[in-house]
Amino acid sequence: MSALEIEALRLAEGRTAILDGLDLRVAPREYLAILGPSGCGKTTLLRAIAGLVRPSEGRIVLDGEVLCDGQRGTHLPPERRAVGFVFQHQALWPHLDARATLRFALRHGARLRGRAAEQRIDELLADVQLAHCAAKAPGQMSGGERQRLSIARALARAPRILLLDEPLGPLDANLRRDLEELLHALHQKLGLVTLHVTHDRDEAFHGNGRAAILRAGRVLQVGTRAEFLAHPADPFVSSFLGTT
């Protein structure tokens, strides 16, 4: 039984196919890295799952609920998908401090207000080790703090799936390591299905997890590092992972 099922997903911009019949299955509680060269459709895949773009064909099913079905014209709007999304450039709101950001997310995503919301905000800030920044606006935070706030915001609505779009990209090596640990610790604690887009091979195979390799809008292969080394699906996979 898969938590996330994606079948024959197609999405084009003009005449260019961004997703070209993409299939993917993700098990419950799985942390799956999405790996591939620039322009292969990694971010678009996450945006399609979140409902921010509308595929022309194919299906996305999450926990048995059809989020999108090109054939039937079904397309659940993003605010009703219960998805957590960490954007590549964070997309924080400069006019709201950390507490106000989470208050907004809880009010609209989890219908939590008042004391219950404030209590949940404290928990979220503690989860991402950001309690000291509660009153800070994004512009007053470091890059790592902003990324932690972005993660807390994604978790605020108690999502069914967490989508991470190159969450470690803009950070230096030490911060990357800390945040990587934080993400995996949160995954252990919450057990959320997580898709982590990256172009970094070491990041993709952290903790011997599985990764899916994309090329030209299709999934070429899904597996662990050992499986890729032992049975690469084609020469591109070998060359991309540097095993040839």
């Binding site: 921010l52 993003p78 605010e79 450039h89 997309a91 924080l92 915001r153 609505r157």
Partner: peptide, 15 residues
Amino acid sequence: EREQEEAALVCGASP
């Protein structure tokens, strides 16, 4: 950024 609005939608806020 368009993503600032999208982030709010994904958070569950109505348009």
